[in-house]
Structure formats: C-alpha cells, structure tokens
Simulated scan of single mutants.
Amino acid sequence: MTWDGKVHHNSHSTLMQSIGERLEEARKRRGISIREAAETTKIRSDFLAGFEENNFDLNLPEIYVRGFLRTYAVLLKINPDKIVTDYTATLLGESKSRKESRELFGRMELQDRSRQSDLTSADGESDAPIEAIESDEPRAPARSPGGWKDLINFDNTVYLKIAVIILSGVLVVAVLIWVIQAIVGSGGSSSASDTRPAVTQGIDSEIINLIALDEVRVKVTEIDGGDVLFQGPLARGETRSVTKRGTILITYTAGANLLVEKGGQRFRMPTEGIGRSTFN
C-alpha cells in the first residue's frame, strides 16, 4: 500500500477535536464573525473568542459558563448537550490531575521524613555503646546550681501567676455581664415600644408564578434583605409559585423561555439569553 500524500478524515477525527475547535469550525462554516455572534447571543465577544481558544476561566459561576456555551452551540447549530458534557468532563479531568499532583508531593514528603528518621535512629544506636565504654558508674541527674530548692520555688511562682491571670479573667467577665444587664434593663421598655410599630408597618406579601416555556434555570432574590426565594431549574411547561415582599431580582439563563405571571397578567423577560430583571 502506498501513501497518496493526502489527509483523509473520518468520523473518529471529530472526537479528537477540542471544544474550541468545534465551535470555531462551526462558526466559520456558517460564515458568522465573532462580532455577529456576540450581537446575536448577547454574550461578550471576548468570552466567545476565549471559548474557541479553550479558555473557560471567566471569573463567573459555572452556571453562567455552561449557559453561554449552550447558547453559543444553539446558534452554531451543533449539539449543545454534547458541548456542555465535554466541558464538564474537562473540569473533572483538571480536578483529578491536581489531586494526583498533591498526592505525589505528599508521598515524596513522607519518604523524606522517613529517611531522616532512619538516619537519626541509626546515629542514636551507634552512640549508645560509646557511652557504656567511657564509664561504668551510674550518673546522677543534672541539677541547676541552686539545687532542687530553686526548682520548687520557680514552680510555685509560675502557679501563682497562672492563678492571678485566671482570677483577673473571671472578674473582667463578671463586670461585663453586670454592665450588659444594666444596659438591657434600662433600655428594655423603650426597645419594646419602638419595635411594635415596625411590625404593623410590614410590607404585604404577594404571589407570582414563574412559567417555563422551555428548560431554564432561575434564581429569585429579594432586593431588601437579600433572601433567596427560589433557585433551581424549571422544565418545559413547569410552573413555580413564589411568595415575595417588595421588589425582587430575577436571574435567568434563557429569558426567551421564561414568563412571570402576576395578578393574571404575564410578562416576558427583556433579554432572550442570560440576564437579570427587577420585578415589583
């Protein structure tokens, strides 16, 4: 068999392409520029260019990166589920590689420590016979110039200092408790009277419905207080009721797939792709 000098492509070659190569090839095949793709998807052009260079570090939560990749893949008419799955596999591979590196360094460090301990024990064993040859008489324990009396006096001084520190701490805690009780006792009645009107002036709650025209991930947050009222995916045709108080912030991955119903009226999101909107 002779080689004809040509490169033959088969179906297996597409499996070897990276995510960026597939996106770039699909965009060029459709004759779309990065700028045109950014205007259509409402995704920054530098994000799209980074995707085609296999750079997915956008300093954003993973849900936004996956949403951007899915939206871009839909525009380029390639399988969005395959792109997102390959991206997730890439993240898992990087995490596994970092874990293996840490384990390798840990094993090397343990080996070094074990080697050092073996050397230390070997030195100790070689010194023991020399001490036995130098003198057969038992050695008395070393004492300080002042003898055992100075050692006992030193221990008593340390114990006395520790006892003084403990007593001082107990007195400080007791004084703080007394001061707090005095403040609470004097201001208790006024605090109670001040908080009662606030309860009666609370904002009335109301219920809105999140309606999914297709798959979409939604997060609903109260502007006042920052409480998360709902966060999660909605399947096609699913309706989720949310009780809110005051103005809320709705974040979504596909605005074209989400409707908000309030008082019998339905409202569309201002952005078809990923975005956020306030709702009174």
Score class of each variant (00 low, 15 high):
6 K>T: 13
6 K>H: 12
6 K>F: 08
9 H>P: 00
11 S>H: 06
19 I>Y: 09
23 L>K: 14
28 K>L: 09
29 R>F: 03
30 R>H: 12
34 I>V: 14
37 A>Q: 01
37 A>I: 01
43 I>N: 00
51 F>M: 15
51 F>R: 02
52 E>W: 07
56 F>I: 03
59 N>F: 05
61 P>G: 15
65 V>Q: 05
68 F>T: 08
69 L>Q: 04
70 R>I: 00
71 T>H: 02
72 Y>C: 03
73 A>R: 05
73 A>M: 04
77 K>E: 12
79 N>V: 05
82 K>D: 14
83 I>F: 06
83 I>K: 02
87 Y>E: 02
90 T>S: 08
93 G>I: 03
96 K>Q: 15
97 S>Q: 11
99 K>Q: 04
116 Q>L: 15
117 S>Q: 15
120 T>M: 13
121 S>Y: 11
123 D>W: 10
124 G>Q: 14
124 G>S: 14
136 D>M: 05
140 A>Q: 09
140 A>V: 08
140 A>T: 12
147 G>I: 12
150 D>G: 15
160 L>H: 12
160 L>N: 11
161 K>F: 03
163 A>F: 10
164 V>H: 14
164 V>R: 13
170 V>W: 09
177 I>P: 00
180 I>W: 13
185 G>W: 10
189 S>P: 02
191 S>N: 05
198 A>D: 08
200 T>P: 00
205 S>R: 13
218 V>N: 05
219 K>Y: 00
223 I>Y: 04
231 Q>W: 10
232 G>N: 04
233 P>C: 13
234 L>V: 07
236 R>C: 05
236 R>G: 06
239 T>A: 05
245 R>V: 01
249 L>W: 03
252 Y>P: 00
256 A>I: 03
259 L>T: 02
259 L>H: 07
267 F>S: 07
271 T>C: 01
272 E>V: 02
279 F>R: 06
279 F>H: 11
279 F>P: 02
